[in-house]
Design a protein around this nucleic acid. Structure first.
Lengths: 143, 143
DNA sequence: TCCGTTTCTGCAAATTTTTGCAACAGCTAG
DNA sequence: CTAGCTGTTGCAAAAATTTGCAGAAACGGA
């Protein structure tokens, strides 16, 4: 999940937006953890390095980075989590009962994606889905 | 998308919760519109009939009804929308550019669902997905 | 029908998220 | 290197959402 600061900066600039220290710090903070990172975690990490950064800025920047697809987010357990966008998308299975999270490779969605494009002309952006349900253990104990 | 008040009430009671006028009114309000309904719309409809009902109650009740799968919700365009849960699930394609919404029948997910169950033992609850992307028109003008 | 238990609701306060605006600061052209 | 244009940020206020708690009310059993 390596993120190339230069690459991100180029992407931002290329689309007519500006590369600011805040944005770079926030990108770094998201990458510090290997996995899903919550708003608060990102905020704390950023604060540690640059105490001046405002929460409103973080909210806006996260939206911005998602918009540009440099970062992906998903709602897990009612709270948004963020992750740097890798080369290949991946998804998650989230157990509604115990909260366990399992990774789900993207190939499961290849067919759906191309079907939607072929049949509906719809260019679906399925970059980071969180599907909820019951993990094997919880499904067992449920009945 | 007919909802049977008796059926809903039975479901609620059956699981050990209580059938209250507030809950029934809120269910009715969700059903009034045929399509996706926002929090504010529901709130207004409920207010029209029973001005006393509190916003906090609405927030809690919507969560509650989703929990019981009597209502499904999805995040569209950054805001939550609610719909009464029908017999067969359905999903939506939401254009990120123009906001157009297209319905997507559930059969597209049959295979995924059974695959997850077979291979991962995961009982996925895919009851109302909103996939974002670009509709044919916007995909065209994008390039 | 009435009672006891436990869930729900309304209210107010706390918390989280969004927004408007003036000052600041990237970036491009000269 | 500088100036100017326009996107960004910080701040404070507004709006949206969640939470704790005491009183109200559903529901099962007597």
């Amino acid at each position: 999940m390596s993120h190339d600061r230069l690459e991100c900066a180029a992407q931002i600039r290329e689309r007519g937006f500006r590369v600011t220290p805040q944005r770079m710090l926030i990108l770094d903070a998201i990458c510090e953890g290997k996995e899903h990172t919550t708003f608060d975690e990102i905020y704390d990490r950023v604060q540690a390095k640059a105490p001046g950064i405002n929460q409103a800025t973080l909210y806006r920047t996260l939206d911005f980075l998602c918009e540009l697809h440099l970062v992906v987010s998903a709602e897990i357990d009612g709270r948004a989590v963020y992750e740097i966008a890798g080369e290949t998308p991946h998804h998650h299975l989230v157990c509604h009962a115990c909260g366990a999270i399992q990774e789900l490779p993207d190939f499961h969605f290849h067919e759906l994606r191309s079907h939607l494009l072929r049949e509906h002309g719809f260019k679906a952006d399925i970059s980071h889905l969180a599907l909820t349900g019951l993990c094997p253990q919880c499904a067992e104990s449920e009945r």
